[in-house]
Design a binder for these strands. Structure first.
Lengths: 249, 249
DNA sequence: GTAAATAACTTGTTTGAACAAGTTTAGGAC
DNA sequence: GTCCTAAACTTGTTCAAACAAGTTATTTAC
């Protein structure tokens, strides 16, 4: 449902690449050709191409062209750069995700909690513990804190479903961006109790601070992932690199 | 040394934000104002702003403006979206990084190694084990594989210094992009031997496949990070989100 | 005073154009 | 043939303009 033309072009080219319509490791048609083919301006095409580069589908080289570098192993559970809920991500991978609320409570941020989460001291918060299952396996143990004055009317029943749907559709809060940090931590007794971790004593922890359109951080969530099923993907682009000389053929 | 104007504007605004010249949590001057102030076109300014958004410095809201959401805890050891060598990253954090080559050898990819790395079977490779220290502490155990036909003339002496400097400056190879995956793995006896991990039996593993301008993957590196010192940072932006309504003041 | 309509902002998208810079191809001198 | 040069590509950057869409402030009608 993207209405922006550059989003449509991005999706269109992405699907053509994924389906193998453009031969792997080969150059795509030039900008000039694509513009004529797709009926758009150069700027709009380049915007779509820029996203393909960031997503790791193509690499562009000044003077040469753009090369298809897609490899079909890319479908993974988690992607970077976008905010996705657990259920959205599960659906995208055609797997069944379910969630269980272990705890729904109200707390006030003390010094220690304020330090950890980034909320101001004495802020009234909802504290929610949730367990996420993928195909009946408990994989993620979630600790979430929501500002009570922003997430007004949040209940345990809502948390059983989708909190974000409530925030966006009912409260009309717009989620803008989320700062995330991935670390590795020792497992707590609680982790060991709920996640079936075998003999691993560490897990992957994704801490995220989420902001709304007023610039206030309204959510802090710590997602503790089962080590064997955690996978974070990224494509890095070398900035302002001198491009290589041709080697002929 | 960035010559592109939008890069200069990005750096300029980034530094102004970091130094507190723009008040935190407040709106920055409007595009119109900044254009007049900086002497550039709207497109060029917006390109710089787009990078600030991706880097998590500002959030933009249609109709409202752009808000400074920088928080000074952002200087960490590793960043996403860019390719940095260990020494570059250490220097940026004003810490002393040293490296030691544990093994320099030639191998040929068998089926298992080909499966793991993504190289074709029977590809001649350099296999290098390196240990990276930060402030005398061993933190990263690196397993690198380089295609011999691309990294011609690579020696143990070069690996003691900077491999990338050799590839870029001597061989004139241009590194374009790198696909990375972060996972958590059980520590091997080798990990335990070299990294002082205490009672943790898992570590963070960053596997990366790096491509040159000919689209050939010439490097596969598995970086095994000490769990207590691993930190991966990211800023996610909610795509095509409906922006929130004003709440007045 | 209140509320609706309007104007004046803000950022978001798209187009067109020109030039810069890197690569490949074609042609010419020898 | 070889080598150099020039032309014809390619992508990269910057500018200018117009309109769309969301928000805020102002004006107008009652």
């Amino acid at each position: 449902m993207p209405k922006a033309k550059y989003e449509q072009l991005y999706q269109f080219l992405k699907e053509k690449i994924e389906s193998g319509e453009y031969p792997p490791q080969e150059l795509l048609p030039s900008e000039h050709t694509l513009i004529a083919e797709l009926g758009c301006s150069r700027n709009t095409l380049r915007r779509a191409v820029g996203e393909l580069v960031r997503a790791g589908y193509v690499q562009t080289m000044q003077g040469k062209g753009m090369r298809n570098i897609f490899q079909p192993s890319q479908q993974t559970t988690f992607t970077l750069g976008t905010i996705e809920t657990f259920s959205e991500s599960a659906a995208r991978n055609q797997q069944r995700g379910t969630s269980k609320v272990l705890l729904f409570s109200s707390v006030t941020a003390d010094r220690k909690l304020a330090e950890k989460t980034g909320f101001a001291e004495n802020t009234p918060l909802f504290y929610i513990q949730r367990l996420h299952y993928l195909n009946e396996r408990p994989l993620i143990f979630n600790h979430s804190y929501f500002r009570q004055d922003v997430a007004q009317g949040l209940t345990r029943e809502i948390a059983e479903g989708s909190i974000y749907r409530y925030l966006e559709n009912e409260l009309h809060i717009s989620i803008i961006n989320s700062k995330r940090v991935v670390t590795v931590e020792k497992a707590t007794p609680l982790d060991l109790q709920y996640l079936d971790m075998g003999d691993c004593n560490c897990l992957a922890v994704v801490s995220s601070q989420t902001y709304n359109s007023d610039g206030v951080m309204f959510e802090y969530t710590q997602s503790r992932h089962h080590p064997n099923f955690f996978r974070f993907q990224d494509n890095a682009v070398r900035r302002s690199a001198a491009h290589g000389k041709s080697e002929g053929k």
